[in-house]
Design a binder for these strands. Structure first.
Length: 854
RNA sequence: GCGGGCGUGGCGGAAUUGGUAGACGCGCCGGACUCAAAAUCCGGUUCUGGUGACAGAGUGUCGGUUCGAGUCCGACCGCCCGCACCA
């Protein structure tokens, strides 16, 4: 019998599925639907192991749900706008459009080689005007609905490249390519009013029951609702006020300073007259816009000549600092500092020698002795040193302050969100043009809908600094749709999160002339199971949730939540290797030498084996899926991806593990195709007599069918594989001689092959045919199981003495407490351990345990 | 810095969610087949002691709750992810 021919078999079945249109689906209100979606990839040129893992997980679910009778939508597309295409243009002189198109072609072929059950007719590429035209319309609708607006905000500016830099392109305060010191610059940009839905986005998290708790918690914290108060401090010697936001109005009597952001309007005024202040502001503006950098940077302040009056204490004034840790984007861009009860304020106060006045007394502390040292007290307690608040608990004091502030017109209680509106403007070429025209007299005017889409010009160059759209000789010149005067197109493009915020809806009706048909969207949405990396836990998922609400309110959709179920997969990792010269080596460049040591393939030089880390080009610890699929086939790669780790955890790719998967596939192949045991024809009724081994295997089949289904439903694919291996281990051991064994072998192999079909679809189809079937497994329902047969008749009960295992007893299922205790006490080892003594207490739990307390 | 997660044999992991820790696999050891090797097949494999039945220890560390803790609570240590212009 011929060996299993991977390449021929896999491509043949891929072709058959495609020709039969197995995975092409239409909305059918008469059938229950299931929408499986994996996060679509950026077309970087080649698929990587992260993709293989993600798409294998999705494919198992899609094929399984189809076998379970669902009308399964499983689409794939390309998140095709983004920076790497522009970088390729700059570094290699290729056009982003051509580069992207070629990458898509190459990656589509790779995905096809994995045998994924996509409805390819629904493929979309977001850089295609037939896709992005719809989001231009959406943006205009958002504008009408008041969900989009324009305001100034700060960006990282590279003065040499004349371009805005992403945080990741700023390395140690310098542009990654130019090396120039990066500055902050204020630009007028478009924003989407995600904060309009802040409360709803927060509240609705509770209803997302099939989302991981950790993702819901991360979103909860990201939205960051905080109740507090605005306080308007009168500025000494001026008519205006300084408005601050605080979450701790109860500590107002402990205030010893105010601090404002370097970009606060008040600061500009003083910086003009004070070169040192101007220098400090400039320094702040040179630092990163990233929150992580701001928070970890040394806290610095600059004392202004301004002072503010304390709202409750006549004659008391506080100094005003400019501080590098106060964000203009949060609250009012100004704070008051209470060093005794906030660590950052305390550090600041110690540095600038400001008073530290405790106003919250910890429970049971002595007011005369309590003092704050290097650690601020942030716990609960009773207010003191605080006039009318004295004796109140923290929460009551917060309310009392808000009330008093309102009464004297100096502030009020308020809610602030950490969540900021979503800035969608990007000063880049390779993105969706923002459909706006700027007119000197009319201001920003929407492009009329009949002139959509606004398409990107093809003839651009990346040779000189700045945004190619802005530099283009003619593209931006147009006339005002409103007054007809000469006008200028918006040259910014959308953030690429814009495209990914609604693609799941486009897939419901990918060929539609509109964004998508309402009936199609109503049928398919929401996505029943969404699968992708944890790195998207906050931004992409939150933006999509926002977008769905905004689309609902603009009449596109009837739902608020796009993803009913979510699984976030872990990363694919690999060992790292360094050669004698200290340079990183690819796994393909090293091998196990004679003594078991790791050496270079080329020359046998010693290799240092490093830690297991996320696969990355920089550490060269990547394995190209193309090589694996070429050598072992897609089924083996898929099986290994599923069997070694649960999806949400990191997966370590090992050559040995892949070999193991490969050996299993071949073992199964040989057992079915090369066996001497003649199996009865398909459909032969079960014989009445079964040998004990046959009976056991038969029952195991039923148990495994239920167990594997349960494991797949719960995303425990590794245990699903383990259960199938247990079953096949039983089958490998049958010699076919006992009564009914040949029949059980047929039943067992058919069961195993059907259970494996979602995971290793090609070899499963091929074995199904070898077992004498003419149907396709892709169209075959999930096997039926008899729950009664899956139940064991006896259970093993652990017998403990003082919590230590001393014996096990085998009893009939559901044996009562008294019988359990009697049997346990009768066990020789138990008697030996008890040594004639009576247990003081006996705990017996049927089907589980007996614990004797001696 | 803030937020989130993870930690179990030599390794990846399993454990019906408070009830026999180590399923399944990898690796290793022993055996069969072979002139030999590879492949394959069979057996063993948490650690310590014991020929053995068994006994002791054991789920990052320390403490707690419980008849019983990998699982619950508190403190700590280590590693990983996110932090708004990477996608």
């Amino acid at each position: 019998m011929a060996r299993y021919n991977v390449k021929e078999t896999e491509s043949r079945w891929q072709q058959r599925w495609s020709e039969a249109g197995c995975f092409e689906v239409e909305a059918d209100p008469g059938k229950p639907k299931y929408y499986v979606l994996e996060m679509f990839p950026y077309p970087s040129g080649r698929i990587h192991m992260g993709h293989v893992r993600n798409y294998t997980l999705g494919d198992v679910v899609a094929r399984y749900k189809k076998a379970k009778g669902f009308n399964v939508l499983h689409p794939m597309g390309w998140d095709a706008f983004g920076l790497p295409a522009e970088n390729a243009a700059i570094e290699r002189g290729v056009h982003p459009a051509g580069w992207t198109r070629e990458n898509i072609e190459a990656m589509r072929e790779q995905l096809r080689g994995m045998g994924l059950s996509y409805d390819w007719r629904r493929e979309v590429a977001t850089c295609d005007p037939s896709y992005y035209r719809h989001e231009q319309k959406m943006f205009l609708d958002f504008l009408k609905a008041g969900l989009a607006y324009r305001k100034e905000s700060w960006v990282n500016w590279d003065p040499v490249e004349n371009t805005v830099l992403a945080n990741e392109q700023v390395i140690d305060g310098r542009g990654w390519r130019s090396g120039a010191l990066v500055e902050k610059r204020k630009l007028s940009q478009w924003f989407l009013r995600i904060t309009h839905y802040a409360q709803d986005l927060l509240d609705a998290l509770e209803g997302l029951e099939r989302w991981p708790d950790k993702v819901r918690l991360m979103q909860h914290n990201w939205i960051g609702r905080s109740e507090g108060a605005r306080v308007r401090f009168e500025l000494v010697g001026r008519d205006d006020v300084l408005e601050i936001f605080t979450t701790r109005p109860d500590t107002l009597f402990g205030a010893s300073f105010c601090a404002v952001s370097a970009n606060h309007p008040l600061v500009a005024e003083f910086a003009e007259k004070d070169p040192a202040l101007a220098a400090f502001v400039a320094e702040c503006n040179r630092s990163s816009t990233s929150e992580a950098d701001i928070e970890t940077a040394e806290k610095k302040g600059y004392l202004t000549p301004l002072r503010v009056r304390h709202p409750f204490r006549d004659g008391v004034t506080l100094p005003v600092y400019v501080a590098n840790f106060v964000l203009m984007e949060y609250g009012t861009g100004a704070i008051f500092g209470c060093p005794a009860h906030d660590q950052r304020d305390l550090d600041f106060a110690r540095k600038y020698e400001l008073p530290v006045i405790p106003v919250v007394l910890p429970p049971k502390a002595d007011p005369a002795a309590f003092a704050v040292g290097d650690e601020a007290y942030v716990g609960p307690g009773t207010i003191y040193n605080s006039d009318f608040l004295d004796g109140m608990e923290v929460e009551a004091a917060k309310a009392a302050v808000a009330e008093r502030l309102t009464a004297i017109g100096r502030g009020e209680g308020t809610i602030t969100w950490r969540l900021r509106d979503w800035g969608v403007s990007r000063q880049r070429y390779w993105g969706c043009p923002i459909p706006i025209i700027h007119c000197e007299s009319c201001g920003p005017v929407p492009v009329p809908e009949d002139q959509l889409p606004v398409t990107l010009p093809q003839d651009v160059d990346f040779d000189s600094p700045g945004n190619p759209l802005d530099r283009h000789p003619s593209w931006k010149h147009t006339t005002c749709p409103s007054c007809g005067a000469d006008a200028r197109r918006e040259t910014d493009t959308f953030d690429t999160f814009f495209e990914s915020s609604w693609y799941f809806a486009r897939f419901a009706d990918a060929q539609a002339e509109t964004a998508f048909g309402r009936a199609e969207a109503d049928y398919w949405l929401p996505v029943d199971q969404y699968i992708g990396g944890v790195e998207h836990a906050v931004l992409h998922l939150l933006y999509s949730r926002f977008f769905t609400r905004a689309l609902r309110d603009c009449g596109y959709l009837g739902i608020a939540e796009p993803f009913a179920g979510l699984v976030t997969q872990g990363m694919v990792c690999h060992e790292t290797y360094k050669g004698p010269d200290g340079k990183w080596l690819y796994p393909s460049e090293v091998a196990k030498g004679d003594g078991g040591a790791t050496v270079t393939v080329d020359g046998g030089k010693p290799v240092t084996v490093g830690r297991v880390e996320k696969m990355s080009k920089s550490k060269r610890n990547t394995v190209d899926p193309a090589n694996i699929i070429d050598a072992y086939g897609a089924d083996t790669a898929r099986l290994f991806m599923l069997s070694d780790s649960p999806p949400e955890r990191d997966l370590e790719w090992t050559e040995a593990g892949v070999d193991g998967a490969w050996r299993y596939l071949n073992r199964l192949w040989r057992a079915i195709t090369e066996s001497d045991i003649a199996l009865p024809p398909p459909g032969t009724p079960k014989p009445t007599e079964l040998s004990p081994a046959a009976e056991q295997a038969w029952r195991a089949c039923h148990k495994t069918i239920l167990g594997v289904a349960d494991a797949i439903e719960r995303f425990r694919f590794n245990t699903a594989v383990a259960q199938i291996r247990e079953l096949t281990n039983l089958l490998f051991a049958l010699d076919g001689k006992g009564a009914g064994e040949a029949w059980v072998l047929r039943f067992g192999w058919e069961t195993a092959v059907r259970l494996l079909a979602p995971m290793m679809p090609h070899v499963a189809e091929e074995l199904w045919v070898r077992l004498g079937h003419t149907t396709m497994l892709a169209e075959t329902p999930w096997p039926d199981a008899d729950p009664a047969l899956a139940e064991d008749e006896t259970v093993t009960i652990a017998v403990q003495i003082n919590g230590k295992l001393r014996a096990t007893i085998e009893v009939a299922k559901d044996t009562g407490k008294d019988a359990l205790i009697e049997q346990a006490l009768g066990h020789p080892n138990v008697q030996k351990q008890l040594d004639g003594k009576q247990p003081r207490k006996v705990i017996a739990v049927p089907n589980k345990i007996v614990n004797l307390v001696a």
